[in-house]
Structures are given as C-alpha cells and as structure tokens.
Amino acid sequence: MLAVENLKVVYRGVILALDGVTLRVEPGEAVAVLGPNGAGKSTLVRALGGLLANYEGRVLDGRILLGDAEITHAGPLAPAREGLTAVLEGRPVFRYLTVMENLRAAGHRLPRARLAREIEEVLARFPRLAERRHEQAGYLSGGEQQMLILGMALLTEPRFLVVDEPSLGLAPRLVADLFQRLRQLQRERGLALVLVEQNARAALAIVDRVYVLERGRVVFEGRREEAERDVDVLEFYLGEGPAGYRQARRYRRRKRWV
C-alpha cells in the first residue's frame, strides 16, 4: 500500500507547492490525481519518486510510506527498491539513445536473458516502437515517446506506477488509445496505477478512484462515480455542468480564491 500523509513540499525553501496532501493507494488499484495547472501534481510525482532534490525541492513535513518502508527522505533510489516507479512529466526518454538503448538502460537491473525477453514483450505491446527500434528516441513522435517511456517504466518492474500527464500534447484519439493500453497493462500486471492528469475526462474513464488537487491541497476525494456526479469536479475539471449555474459558481469560486 502507498500512503502519503500530510505531505508538505517547498521549493528553494520558500515556494510551498504541496500543503498537507494525504492520499492512499491500494495494490492493484487505479487512481487518478486531477487538478489544474500549478496545483502541485508534478510536485507530488517528484516526491513519490524521491526526486525533489533535483528540483531544489524538499519535503518539509509529513511522510510517504510504501508498504512498511518510509521513503520520504530516502533518496531517489529508494522508491525503486520498494517497487514504485515515477514517470515524470514531458516523457523524459533519453533522446540521444536509440529506442533499444533506452529500453536496455531502463531494464539494466534485469539479468541479460530476462531483459531480452522483457524487451521483446514491450516491443510486441507497442509495435510502433519495434519498427523504430534503432532510431534515436529524440526523433519519435510524442505518442511514440510516451509509449517508450511507459515501456521503460515496465522494465523497472514496478508494483506502483505513477505517470505524470501522459496525455500532454497528444491528439484526443491517441489519448484514448494510450489510456486503454494503460488500463490493460494495469489489469494484466496487477499494477497499482496513479494517473496524474489535467485531462480529467480521459483519466476518469480508466480509474476506480479520484483525488483532486488544488493549490497544493486535496479538495476532492472519492470514487469515480461520485466525481462524475459532483458538480464542482465536473465543472472545474471536466469543463461541464449546467450552464447558468456554472457561471454563478465560477464567480463565487473566483472570489473564494482571491
């Protein structure tokens, strides 16, 4: 089980990006973390991956537990040991490495024969990657890079897979396809999936539970159906809701913000 308790994160000692976030993900569960730009979603992903130090960030308070292990301050390689892999925003593949080299780099901990088998499995799952296996990853399309980084993440053998905005910059058709693959992966492998997204509608289609972040806090938490019923969530994260009502609410909401 992944548990985040009252997590507070600051950048450069002053910018408070997470202000007491608490959430919980059970093994094998698919959870979405939604929220507008600047809500602190990527900060959460970096914290889970133990990568805050690379962004001049630091956990100020609270803790992150993976099973029995506390990984809050354990550094970048600890989450890995406990079976959590964080796929950072912007699909950070190694652009000067070929597709194959990217996969080999990500799977470096596997024994040689296993690695070869697992790579073949990833390539079978994503045939576009197989076609372009000897090309530098920097020349792949956005969708292909997203598949590559997911394939790489799989080779690290996660039990908890955290993915930051995979839909970013992809055409809607690609997003739907990508999310279906994610869902399938999650089911087949019994992964816990934490899908961090701005694209709420697409994300809601494949998760069981939802958290909504806003200004570094959890402002909504519930099952997917509840999220789909909740007017606030619909309105602000799906851009839907009864028209007149929506106007009024947005006005009220804006006042509450300032």
Binding site: N54, P92, H108
Partner: peptide
C-alpha cells in the same frame, strides 16, 4: 551495458534516476 547507462546519465541525471539508474 555500462556504456549505455553512462550515456543515459550524461543526457539527464533526473530521467536516469527516475528509471532507477
């Protein structure tokens, strides 16, 4: 194998760390 890892780290330390390198 090590050469690939060296090049990966050289390109992006944080991306490498995220992949448990």
């Amino acid at each position: 194998r090590y050469g690939v890892l060296v090049r990966a780290v050289a390109e992006s330390e944080v991306a490498a760390l995220a992949m448990k390198i």
